[in-house]
């Protein structure tokens, strides 16, 4: 890998438990630069928790999570995340993106151009001055994407980034995500949209009740799922009872 890269990311026997049964159950895997990774699984399978663990927001109950070059606390992060429910600060859309850049240590003179570029890439330039919290759900989702993108992270975690978007906005966002990918950002994304997984993904991680049941290239996963659970999931027989 190129110098100073934080990838690959290695998870070794990672579990996450809060009282009851394991939410993430002994997951081991390596995430490399390059292919887009899509995380699939039924509601409650542990997709969001797994991404939070990877992103460093949760500490594993056991096991190890290691980036190839560890993050120094306080140093600008080389990874970003767009949450399933993005949180906007009580300020304008523009200021929300600028805030992220400021935290990342990017100085004022360079911020303006980066903010405008990021807002432009998600089609929100015309709403730059609008208070972020009065934007619609889909607009906030796009703003969250712009905020993450403005940082030009090496790794971008996306938790169902198009869940609340209409079809045309979804296409728009997908093309934005493709552009991120083309620009060399490693995309790790959870989605329930199988079409989207096919369009954007290179490889699939399939979770079932906190266990990593299957990992396969996209085409192979959909054509010949190896596990029963994955086959059922693809057919839409979601065994969530």
């Amino acid at each position: 890998m190129n110098q100073g890269s934080i990838l690959p990311l290695r998870l070794a026997e990672v579990s996450f438990t809060v009282g009851g049964p394991a939410i993430i159950d002994r997951v081991s895997l390596e995430i490399d630069a390059g292919p887009s990774t899509i995380i699939l699984g039924a509601n409650g399978a542990g997709k969001s928790v797994l991404m939070r663990l990877m992103h460093g927001l949760l500490a594993p109950s056991s096991g190890r999570i290691e980036w190839s070059s560890p993050e120094r606390p306080g140093a600008p992060r080389k990874q970003a995340m767009v949450f399933q429910r993005p949180v906007m600060l009580r300020r304008s859309a523009y200021a929300n993106v600028a805030y992220a850049l400021k935290i990342a240590g990017i100085l004022e003179p360079r911020r303006g151009a980066l903010v405008r570029e990021a807002l432009d890439s998600v089609g929100l330039s015309h709403l730059a001055r609008r208070p972020a919290r009065v934007l619609s759900g889909g607009e906030q989702q796009r703003l969250a994407l712009a905020r993450a993108w403005a940082l030009h992270p090496e790794v971008l975690f996306l938790d169902e980034p198009t869940a609340s978007l209409d079809p045309s906005a979804t296409r728009e966002i997908e093309s934005v995500i493709k552009a991120f990918d083309a620009a060399g950002t490693k995309v790790v994304m959870a989605t329930h949209n199988l079409g989207q997984a096919r369009r954007l993904g290179d490889e699939i991680l399939f979770l079932d009740q906190g266990r990593l049941v299957e990992r396969a290239p996209v085409v192979e996963f959909f054509a010949r799922p190896k596990s029963e659970q994955a086959a059922a999931f693809i057919k839409g027989e979601l065994p969530w009872t």
Binding site: R77, A80, V87, L89
Partner: peptide, 13 residues
């Protein structure tokens, strides 16, 4: 409570 994850994700101390 509402902002914590977002702010930590951005790297805010």
């Amino acid at each position: 409570r509402e902002y914590e994850e977002q702010l930590r994700s951005l790297g805010a101390r």
